[in-house]
Amino acid sequence: MDEKIFELSFEIIGYAGNAKGMAFEAISKAKAGNIDEARALLKESKDEVNKAHKCQTQLIQQEASGNKTDVSVVLIHAQDHLMNTMNYQMLADEIIDIHERLHKLENK
C-alpha cells in the first residue's frame, strides 16, 4: 500500500472518530438541556468531518489524475468510519431538535 494512502486513511479515521465523539457528546448536552452547547459541539463535529473530507478529496483527485489507488482494508475502514460518522451527525441533529422541543414543552 502506498504510504500516502495509508497516511490519509488514518487521518480520515482520526478526524471521523473525533467528530463522532463530539456528536455523541452533543446529544448528551442536549439531553441535559444545554441546547446551545449541543449545537456548538455538533458544529465542531462537522468541522472535523470537513477535515476528513479534505483527505478523501486528495485520494479522489489522485485517482482522477490517473494514479490508481490501491484499495486496502485500512482505506475501506476509513471510508466506513467517515460514512458512519456523517450518518450519526444527521441523527444527532434530529435528536438535538427533539430535546429542544421537549425542554421547551417541559418549561412552559
Rank of each mutant, 00 (worst) to 15 (best):
62 Q>A: 02
7 E>V: 08
80 D>L: 03
35 I>R: 06
108 K>D: 04
5 I>W: 10
13 I>S: 09
81 H>D: 01
70 D>G: 14
12 I>T: 09
80 D>T: 06
102 L>K: 05
11 E>W: 11
93 D>E: 03
76 I>M: 02
30 A>I: 03
43 K>W: 07
31 K>V: 00
73 V>A: 15
11 E>A: 15
80 D>A: 04
41 L>M: 10
81 H>N: 08
92 A>H: 07
108 K>H: 08
79 Q>R: 07
33 G>V: 01
2 D>G: 04
104 K>N: 13
78 A>I: 02
1 M>I: 09
87 N>G: 08
48 E>P: 12
103 H>G: 06
103 H>Q: 00
30 A>P: 00
70 D>H: 11
86 M>K: 12
70 D>A: 13
105 L>V: 15
3 E>L: 10
24 F>V: 04
80 D>R: 06
82 L>V: 04
10 F>Y: 00
15 Y>I: 12
86 M>F: 01
49 V>Q: 09
21 G>M: 02
72 S>Q: 09
107 N>L: 02
17 G>I: 12
58 Q>L: 06
21 G>C: 10
84 N>K: 12
97 D>N: 12
75 L>M: 06
101 R>V: 06
82 L>D: 06
13 I>A: 00
48 E>S: 07
75 L>H: 06
17 G>M: 14
3 E>D: 14
47 D>F: 07
95 I>M: 08
73 V>S: 08
92 A>F: 08
97 D>H: 04
90 M>Q: 05
70 D>N: 13
29 K>R: 15
81 H>A: 09
44 E>L: 11
27 I>G: 00
30 A>R: 01
60 I>N: 11
30 A>W: 00
16 A>P: 11
43 K>M: 07
53 H>S: 06
69 T>Q: 09
41 L>S: 11
2 D>P: 15
105 L>F: 14
27 I>H: 09
71 V>P: 13
86 M>E: 01
98 I>V: 05
53 H>C: 03
41 L>H: 08
34 N>I: 01
48 E>W: 10
90 M>Y: 05
13 I>P: 15
43 K>L: 09
57 T>P: 01
73 V>E: 03
88 Y>M: 01
107 N>Q: 08
60 I>R: 13
60 I>P: 14
27 I>V: 05
90 M>L: 03
83 M>H: 02
4 K>M: 15
52 A>V: 07
26 A>P: 03
68 K>M: 12
57 T>R: 07
35 I>Y: 02
1 M>Q: 14
5 I>Q: 10
58 Q>W: 10
